[in-house]
């Protein structure tokens, strides 16, 4: 009996190998590729002339061993042109697939990988490893609650962004249905830098005032307000409305010109300058009512 069964299975296996379905073939190929890649990775580690130590903040309320925040060290090979995000991806793919961080476009456009790298808010994808002191310490953005590892809760940041009504809203629409709403080159130049914001939250995280005063709109939201308040196409009524939002107690007046936001902004937006200009605009519009 037993021999028969063995024979049967053997035959079945043989048949399967002969008549392998395309899916199975693909899976096998993938597995082989995976093995090769892993081999390549360990080769990489051997080949690389230098390795960098990453000290990464770990925390996960759902895993008992990670409930207490700690730092994990990872050794990654260094290659020319390597960014911090590259290193993180290497560490995750090679050592610990549970290492969690946000990233998407990898080219400083999506704004999802703002991290606290060596004590400063930076974009992981825009920060070159060579520009940093090694070992590299990577933490989630300060002043935001940590959800898991390097992922912070951005909800409050988004709320502040939405509070300034960040959308184009002109007083009057052009007469023609398909007529363009043209902006003068000078006016475009004025708002140009403010339009660069990628909502990464680095500025808000660096701001000492925003850390203490939860209601403070914060640099990103005020910059957003600047972008539309200074847009001449919107008209004076809308500008008044916008100024009224940002000149609230927890609006522009809370800015103490520490320049922290301006220094960390990965898109080099002169945030402090924009906030200061809005303060002056607010004072001017208040004086006008007299």
């Amino acid at each position: 009996m037993s021999t028969q069964v063995t024979e049967q299975t053997e035959t079945e296996t043989e048949e399967q190998t002969e008549e392998q379905s395309p899916g199975e073939r693909r899976r096998e190929k993938k597995e082989q590729l995976q093995r090769e890649r892993e081999q390549e990775k360990s080769d990489l580690l051997d080949e690389a002339e230098e390795t960098v130590e990453l000290k990464i903040f770990r925390y996960d309320p759902e895993v008992p061993e990670k409930e207490e925040p700690r730092f994990d060290s990872f050794e990654v090979p260094f290659f020319e042109g390597m960014t911090v995000l590259d290193a993180l991806i290497y560490a995750r793919d090679t050592y610990d697939s549970s290492l969690t961080f946000r990233h998407s476009c990898r080219q400083a456009v999506c704004g999802s990988d703002a991290l606290f790298i060596n004590g400063k808010q930076r974009l992981g994808c825009k920060t070159q490893m060579v520009d940093l002191e090694w070992p590299i310490r990577i933490e989630p953005l300060p002043h935001q609650e940590v959800v898991k590892d390097l992922v912070v809760d951005m909800e409050h940041f988004y709320e502040q962004m939405h509070a300034v009504e960040p959308y184009f809203d002109p007083d009057e629409l052009p007469d023609g249905e398909r007529e363009e709403q043209r902006q003068t080159p000078e006016n475009r130049e004025k708002v140009k830098l403010s339009t660069r914001c990628i909502w990464c939250g680095a500025c808000m995280s660096s701001c000492n005032v925003a850390a203490g005063d939860n209601q403070y709109l914060g640099p990103a939201a005020i910059n957003k307000a600047y972008r539309f308040a200074m847009d001449e196409r919107e008209g004076t009524d809308r500008k008044e409305d916008r100024l009224r939002i940002i000149e609230q107690e927890h609006g522009v007046w809370r800015c103490q010109t520490q320049f922290s936001c301006t220094e960390v902004c990965p898109k080099d937006i002169p945030l402090t300058e924009h906030i200061q200009e809005l303060k002056r605009e607010a004072v001017k519009s208040n004086l006008k009512f007299w």
Partner: peptide, 17 residues
């Protein structure tokens, strides 16, 4: 959250003065 604030003038004048 960020939408309801107290009267707006005070902050402006305190800053200016």
């Amino acid at each position: 959250m960020a939408e309801h604030y107290s009267s707006f003038q005070r902050g402006t004048w305190r800053w200016l003065f």
